[in-house]
Amino acid sequence: MPRPSLNLSANLPDPDGFYADLLAAHDGLSKAESDALNARLLLILANHIGERGLLREAIQLAASTYRQNNT
């Protein structure tokens, strides 16, 4: 069985609804509280994925996107 790779096609049902939930969770939070929430959310999602290869790919993708937009 080939190793699963990161799904980079649009995969979110109701994308606007998800985005609204994400923003709503941060409503009224300070920058520090928001950072903490994001960190908890990331850890929860990472644990759910539970696949080191996928997580490594996702980290690399996020890091390279940052660099591209800042060079």
Partner: peptide, 23 residues
Amino acid sequence: EISRVFRDAVLDLTENHDFARPL
């Protein structure tokens, strides 16, 4: 700052969620 944010997030989750304990 960000490594402290992640560290504290792990510790906050750990109290009630087993999955965070190995971290």
